[in-house]
């Protein structure tokens, strides 16, 4: 069975799961685990309104994150659920400014002084994604998309009062956050990124392996909400061809 491909197609979007089946408590972490880890084979991805992102934002963000992590033998960022990850993260306490000092005055400062904008992550993305500099981005050819991202990265372009470099750095980091974090957060669907690099995940106990040099550690990955009776086990066990 071509498990890799299968894993990608049968996994319904997180949003479909959340809104289609049960309405889980809107809290980060464990409230959603069971859902995220209980794929129902064959459920088609559904177009339903998300927690935060509008459909237009979702389309743009899909195009953006897929240039940060494009598809190759392994899923692209959006294929691994990173847009769902954003959609959910931006509604959490973090999305609304937890861990962010917000008092003014707000002055640009220098890069060594860190983020100085007045916006929480949810405000930040809402503003940035609405900026005209990004309008039509999803329609561009990949090379043109990369060229625009590079201009942002080099701070040659800004999104209103958001410097391009600031936007790029945060977008890149949050894309990696979604791609590589535990699937309970909505990205890293089927733990694809962990299988890609060989990271075994949250269940970690290596007393007898730690000093075995060059060990080919092939145990399939397991997330915080991993369940041995779940469908995922069968997939993961064959995932790396072992």
């Amino acid at each position: 069975m071509d498990t890799k491909r299968n894993a990608l197609t049968w996994m319904p979007s997180r949003r479909a799961l959340l809104l289609g089946a049960v309405a889980p408590a809107l809290m980060p972490g464990l409230g959603l685990d069971a859902l995220a880890q209980t794929p129902r084979q064959g459920a088609p991805p559904r177009k339903t309104p998300g927690f935060f992102l509008t459909e237009a934002e979702e389309r743009l963000l899909t195009a953006l994150v897929d240039r940060i992590i494009p598809r190759d033998e392994w899923p692209s960022a959006s294929e691994a659920g990173v847009v769902d990850f954003f959609d959910f993260q931006l509604t959490t306490d973090w999305g609304h400014g937890q861990g962010l000092y917000r008092k003014g005055p707000h002055t640009a400062g220098n890069p060594r002084q860190g983020y100085q904008l007045p916006y929480t992550p949810s405000e930040f993305y809402r503003r940035a994604l609405a900026d005209k500099a990004l309008a039509g981005f999803e329609g561009l050819a990949p090379a043109a998309q990369d060229a625009l991202l590079t201009r942002l990265e080099k701070n040659e372009l800004s999104l209103g009062d958001i410097p391009g470099g600031t936007f790029f750095t945060i977008l890149r980091q949050n894309t990696l956050d979604g791609y590589f974090s535990d699937p309970i957060h909505g990205g890293n669907r089927d733990m694809a990124s962990w299988r890609m690099i060989g990271f075994p995940g949250a269940h970690a106990y290596y007393i007898t392996e730690i000093d075995r040099f060059e060990l080919d550690y092939a145990r399939p990955p397991a997330g915080v909400a991993y369940r041995t009776d779940g469908v995922l086990r069968g997939v993961a066990q064959t995932a790396r061809g072992r």
Partner: peptide, 20 residues
């Protein structure tokens, strides 16, 4: 395994001072 959530603890600093 709940503690082994990299996003929550290492990136979002759940155990640390809240700069807010």
């Amino acid at each position: 395994p709940e503690m082994h959530d990299e996003l929550k603890y290492a990136l979002r600093y759940k155990l640390m001072m809240d700069t807010q």
